[in-house]
Amino acid sequence: MTTENNVLIEVKDLEKHFKKSTVKALNGVDVKINKGDVVVVIGPSGSGKSTFLRCLNLLEVPTGGHIWFEGQEITDKKNNINKMRQKMGMVFQSFNLFPHKSVRENITMAPVKLGIMKKEEANRRAEELLQRVGLPDKIDAYPNNLSGGQKQRIAIVRALAMNPDVMLFDEPTSALDPEMIGEVLDVMKELARDGMTMVVVTHEMGFAKEVATRVIFMEDGRILAENTPREFFENPENERLRSFLSKVL
């Protein structure tokens, strides 16, 4: 069904060995992510989920293997990583909004300074995106005056403002009070429905079941299982996955 030119990200033999660490955080990860995929990554703490995600945009530099994004090798030093990152949005557990800048500046700073958009166009885009996530009235607020759920929705908007081809999420709801998780997941679900390619590390199994096109289970720096959500949750073949699911479901 999927043809080669549908592949957005390809990962081969990915390894990451942190200095001063005795074991490899990633130990041979192979995966293909197609356009429009919503890939959810789950696994126990320390299994390498964040490291995998952060290697995709080179926030962590792999110690082995290769990653291609839109046909260009990210892990090749000759390629301009800054240019490639413009097309890969990232959302962090701890939001990482810029506290000294207003919501508007947080959103428009990158597109304007990096020459993607004129200031007016970026402003319009910010307003439109804020409307979509239900926060149009916060455009002139400062991050420190917002709730966690609002901050995360704005962090998502900040990444979207660059018109990325893929969005990477590292436990976007883990730092939130329970009553705010829903509002962030709703935004992510809408994004998925609109066809955004997403890679999401999360403990929200409901999200995985509802919107994932594929679910990946990691342990000890490897992918142990990978399937459609239905097969993944209803017929888990892997023994370790079964034991993990029995703990989290």
Partner: peptide, 23 residues
């Protein structure tokens, strides 16, 4: 400054010096 600020800046596509001076 929290190291997440540098990561956020870099993940948007700013280079190291731009992130340093702008953020």
């Amino acid at each position: 400054i929290d190291k997440g600020q540098m990561e956020a800046g870099r993940s948007l596509g700013f280079n190291y010096v731009q992130t340093m001076t702008g953020i």
